[in-house]
């Protein structure tokens, strides 16, 4: 089978573990649910999001504990992920002690970790401290960067800087120009995984759940046969497939947020302690060459 064919059909399969994160298998096509015990047999990577280290209110007084549980679940995955993505809001208030704690917990995965900032990570200093600590290897000057691994082209975007009154997430002209340049000349058959904090599709503009200039970014990605967009920010799982673009938001490891419009505001949902871990999550993804479906599964770790 040619690379081209794999690429066109190839996509991502994902098993979601509530309470921890998402493990992804790149394999191909349209979303299809997999059993949570099914081992991934390709290139696998994990996603965690919205750890909000520093948050200590109802419903979660122990965000380091739930984040550590998520990392432990990634560690215990049947197929060891090749890398770990964190889709932002690593910290709650961008404080050095929060970054310290988060960095130590994430290191427990023993994996290459790639992070993009959430709006909670760029308070006061425009994200300089976050980038210095979590993106030093990628040298993402404005908090965005790309790299290749396992045949997949990964693009980390920053849509939380320079937000405008009344607006939503924002990429900006410089980042869009960089993205166009980054994708130029790349084979359309190569699977692309884009990860950013705020959803790159309009989930619920009334709550600012979208990115105002994402259409331009998605326009640059449409020629590729398999594009998976991974986001956080909304602390719940949402998915959408649009042509060759598959969108997925991950759960938070800290606290759940209500479904769009289901509450007066997007503040933390107050859930009883026994239910909390069932509403937190991790994602795991892997690529299986020659298989042709993209599947995403939600499997609560807690009951």
């Amino acid at each position: 089978m040619s690379d081209n064919e794999i690429g066109r059909r190839g996509a991502l399969r994902c098993m979601l573990w509530a309470g921890s994160g998402v493990i992804w298998t790149v394999s191909g096509g349209v979303p299809r649910a997999l059993g949570d015990t099914q081992p991934a047999d390709g290139f696998t990577f994990a996603q965690v999001s919205d750890s909000h280290i520093g948050f200590a209110r109802e419903p979660n007084m122990d965000t380091p504990g739930t984040f550590a549980a998520a990392i432990a679940a990634v560690r215990a995955a049947p197929a060891r992920p090749a890398l770990l993505l964190h889709t932002g809001d690593v910290s709650h208030l961008s404080r050095p002690d929060e970054f310290d704690a988060a960095e130590k917990i994430m290191a427990g995965a023993g994996l290459d970790t790639h992070a993009v900032p959430g709006e909670h990570d760029v308070i006061e200093d425009g994200g300089a401290a976050f980038m210095a600590r979590f993106q030093s290897r990628e040298r993402g000057k404005g908090g965005y960067y790309s790299f290749d691994q396992g045949g997949v082209h990964f693009v980390g975007l920053n849509n939380v800087i320079d937000l405008r009154a009344g607006g939503m997430g924002h990429l900006g002209a410089d980042q869009l120009a960089w993205l166009a340049d980054d994708l130029r000349g790349r084979a359309a058959s190569q699977p692309i995984v884009v990860f950013a904090h705020i959803p790159l599709w309009s989930v619920y503009p009334e709550w600012g759940w979208g990115t105002e200039d994402s259409a331009q970014a998605l326009g640059l990605l449409r020629r590729f046969g398999s594009v998976t967009v991974l986001n956080g920010h909304i602390h719940q799982v949402m998915q959408k497939v649009e042509g060759t673009l598959a969108f997925h938001t991950a759960r938070s490891t800290a606290f759940p947020q209500p479904a769009p419009g289901a509450a007066a505001s997007p503040g933390p949902m107050k859930v009883e302690a026994p239910r909390l871990r069932a509403m937190l999550g991790v994602a795991s993804i892997s690529q299986v060459f020659g298989r042709s479906e993209l599947a995403i599964i939600d499997t609560p770790l807690g009951a």
Partner: peptide, 12 residues
């Protein structure tokens, strides 16, 4: 004087 929330800019 218009203002907004720097974290949640839909708040004005």
């Amino acid at each position: 004087w218009d203002y907004f929330c720097g974290l949640h800019p839909h708040m004005q």
